[in-house]
Simulated assay, not measured.
Amino acid sequence: MRPSFPGGHGGAQEADGSLGDRRRAVLTCAAVMAVADLLGVDTAVVSTSSPFTDLGLSSSQLARLTAHLEDAMGVEVPLTAIYDHPDIEQLVEYLAMR
């Protein structure tokens, strides 16, 4: 299920060409929820700036994370992106620029 955008925002580019803070917030929320789901923890304990491995995700969980994120965000997330952008903030920034 894809996340809904606040205020009816469809995730399209805004007038100035930026993807907008709302879209980044939705992407961040989706990533936090996916990580929390994989770890079986509350979303409040998931740091967006800690590396995925420091959060306790194993390599097999990182592979599953890509599928969770693809479903939630509606964008392709290659496994290499998880290693090239090793925390939620960096990954969201990367995905927002695609």
Rank of each mutant, 00 (worst) to 15 (best):
M1S: 15
M1P: 09
R2H: 10
P3F: 15
S4H: 10
S4Q: 14
F5L: 11
F5C: 02
F5P: 04
P6L: 13
P6S: 10
G7D: 13
G7N: 14
G8L: 14
G8Y: 08
G8Q: 08
H9A: 13
H9T: 02
H9F: 15
G10L: 12
G11L: 04
G11T: 04
A12E: 14
A12W: 08
A12H: 13
A12R: 12
A12S: 14
Q13M: 13
Q13C: 06
E14P: 00
E14G: 12
G17T: 10
G17N: 10
S18M: 06
S18N: 09
L19V: 15
L19M: 12
L19Q: 05
G20E: 04
D21M: 10
R22A: 15
R22D: 12
R24E: 14
R24I: 10
A25L: 07
A25M: 07
L27A: 07
T28V: 03
T28A: 11
T28L: 10
A30S: 14
A30H: 02
A31E: 03
V32M: 03
V32T: 12
M33S: 13
A34L: 08
V35Q: 03
V35K: 07
D37H: 13
L38C: 11
L38E: 10
L39G: 05
L39E: 09
V41A: 13
D42I: 03
D42L: 06
T43Q: 12
T43P: 12
T43R: 13
T43N: 04
A44W: 05
A44C: 06
A44H: 11
V45Q: 14
V45Y: 06
V46I: 15
T48M: 05
T48A: 11
T48S: 14
T48N: 03
T48W: 02
S49E: 15
S49I: 14
S49R: 13
S49F: 11
P51E: 14
P51R: 14
P51W: 01
T53F: 09
D54M: 11
D54Q: 15
L57S: 06
S58H: 02
S58D: 11
S59E: 08
S59R: 06
S59Q: 06
S59P: 05
S60G: 02
L62R: 14
L62W: 01
L62Q: 14
L62D: 00
A63R: 07
L65E: 01
T66P: 00
T66D: 03
T66M: 01
A67C: 04
H68K: 14
H68F: 10
L69E: 02
L69K: 04
L69G: 01
E70P: 00
E70Y: 02
E70I: 04
G74A: 05
V75A: 05
V75I: 11
E76M: 10
E76W: 04
E76Y: 07
V77Y: 01
V77G: 00
L79T: 11
L79D: 10
L79M: 10
L79G: 12
A81C: 08
A81K: 00
A81P: 00
A81W: 03
A81R: 03
A81L: 05
I82R: 01
Y83R: 08
Y83P: 03
H85C: 08
P86H: 07
D87M: 06
D87R: 05
I88F: 00
Q90S: 15
Q90E: 15
L91D: 08
L91N: 09
L91A: 08
V92D: 01
E93V: 08
Y94A: 08
Y94S: 06
L95V: 07
A96Q: 04
A96I: 06
M97T: 13
M97A: 15
R98A: 14
R98K: 12
